[in-house]
């Protein structure tokens, strides 16, 4: 196995493109190293992107936030502006693993690892985040929901890697939230999760909503019916019940060691309702 630590994105893309064997990008490494330990992957090349300029930066502009691919999740919560704008995203990212893992893991890695249970992914999709992808041939931007295509599979082509995640600027009277269900209070993988992002009008009516479920299908699910269920409402009980029903109806989960189909389907609705309440309160100016 070779280990490379290039200082430019171009060089990194070149290394990834040229490698004939199995090449992996290393940012936080909290998934990759576990897989290596288990013998699930045996890389021929690891390209560590942490020495590339900008990869560890969070940039704020009028257009929103650009979060470098090597920014550890803990750094997100240390950024006051980001935490204020996208509390749901920051909370989601800081639910991944332990404090130790949060000191290393990245949202880009969480996304590219392509686990259906990834915590930050539903929150990013709900927020309407995009990713910047670079290759030797150039760069492109895609919506986060278009990156994961299956369990452990992404739409990234050989020689491509994610350089940053871009979150839009926070709209007035909007708010996001992320909740996951785990049996313990910490250290678990989401059994089912839900992110909600809502915008309100001056009267507190929901004008826009994005509702995303995690761990109930092979990828995170953007549930349009769930959003429709609450748009045009003030999140009254009837709207919440419709939201929950729409989320449960959208689930396509499996039975596994972490949960059953029945459990995931039911709890998806419960979490959606609870996450919507938080997002709604935040949009209304409550923290």
């Amino acid at each position: 196995m070779r280990y490379e630590m290039p200082t430019t994105a171009k060089a990194a893309a070149g290394l990834l493109a040229k490698e004939k064997g199995r090449a992996f990008v290393l940012a936080g490494g909290t998934d990759l190293l576990v897989k290596m330990k288990a013998g699930v992957v045996e890389p021929d090349l690891i390209v560590d992107i942490k020495a590339i300029k900008g990869m560890k930066d969070i940039k704020k502009s009028a257009g929103g936030f650009v979060i470098g691919a090597a920014v550890p999740c803990v750094a997100l919560s240390e950024n006051a502006a980001l935490t204020k704008a996208w509390p749901g995203v920051v909370e989601a990212a800081n639910l991944i693993g332990s404090k130790q893992v949060q000191g290393r893991c990245t949202m880009s890695g969480n996304l590219c690892n392509a686990s259906p249970a990834a915590d930050s992914v539903p929150a990013l999709i709900a927020a309407g985040a995009k990713v910047s992808i670079i290759s030797a041939k150039g760069s492109r931007k895609v919506a986060v929901e278009d990156v994961t295509t299956g369990v452990g599979r992404t739409s990234l082509k050989k020689g491509e890697f994610v350089t940053a995640i871009e979150l839009p600027a926070k709209k007035p009277k909007s708010g996001d939230a992320y909740l996951r269900f785990i049996p313990r209070t910490e250290m678990d993988i989401a059994v089912v999760s839900c992110a909600v992002n809502v915008s309100l009008d001056a009267k507190g009516m929901i004008t826009k909503a994005r509702v995303v479920l995690g761990a109930v299908a092979i990828t995170a699910l953007l549930v349009k019916d769930a959003a429709s269920a609450i748009v045009g409402t003030k999140l009254d009980d009837a709207a919440k019940a419709k939201l929950a029903a729409a989320c449960s109806a959208a689930c396509k989960p499996i039975d596994d060691k972490r949960g059953t189909v029945e459990f995931r389907t039911e709890v998806a609705g419960v979490l959606a309702r609870r996450a919507a309440e938080i997002a709604y309160a935040r949009a209304g100016g409550k923290q």
Binding site: G29, T30, L33, I46, P72, S98, Q100, R104, M187
Partner: peptide, 23 residues
């Protein structure tokens, strides 16, 4: 060896990490 127990915790450049998850 998988970041689930914290027994290998060290502080790396000021941040707490599992040393089993760092090359």
């Amino acid at each position: 060896g998988t970041g689930d127990c914290g027994a290998c915790s060290v502080i790396l450049d000021g941040r707490l990490v599992c040393s089993c998850l760092v090359l």
